[in-house]
Amino acid sequence: MADKITVGYTHLSGCTGCTVALADNYAGLLTLLDKYVDLKYMPTLADARHIQKVDVSFVEGSCCINDKLAVEELKETREKSAVVVALGGCACYGNITRFSRGGQQNQPAHEAYLPIGDVIKVDVYIPGCAPTPQMIRNVAVMAYLLLKGTKEQKDLATAFLKPLMMAAQKGTTACFCDLMTEVINQGLCMGCGSCAAACPVRAITHEYGKPQGVRDLCIKCGACYNQCPRSWFSFDVVSNYEAINEAIMAALQ
């Protein structure tokens, strides 16, 4: 179909959890591939693995700067993609790979890992460890609407993707501490509980209604801060949650 957007998937230092999350859309993934997405290359799920020119590329994992191939592939991805999406905590913020000290077999000298935003310009973040199938699905549908939709759909997709683009501009580090420095210290926390629910390692409890983190447990994935309604919140988008949810579900029928 000519109307599809072309998509690629570059796999760097990630655990394939992001790939699995994408695949966990099950029938939704098949509909995406049938109607909206021409998957040009992807390790694991496609035959073609080498980077090609695409509209949107997803990058899983952080970039090992001691690995020449990884750096080259990342740069090539940037050069050949109109839009680069950092998929998952490692690509966005380094996540668990921040804790690498090297020494693992069979490449003991691979010790330095950077979020991809420290090597190339990134357009959109999908944080989370693992990112959720629904979040990947929503971004994929919105990316399609942005590139192929009507004027109205383009506006919606732009509004939807804007906070994720702003997250990409904001930086490449994340931690439970963001809740302290950017939410509580800024006088914005109202004790809803979102951060504790979002944390994949149960590092966050609420003491007297406010988040408390076990910082030694934190893997620096950025889920808590990005899930927080007081990190970023768009009334234009979220107030239309019902219509947007319905549109996404209808698109995947």
Partner: peptide, 12 residues
């Protein structure tokens, strides 16, 4: 609602 539209850490 943010969690439904942007389920960063709220799978399923």
């Amino acid at each position: 609602r943010k969690g439904q539209l942007y389920p960063i850490g709220l799978r399923d």
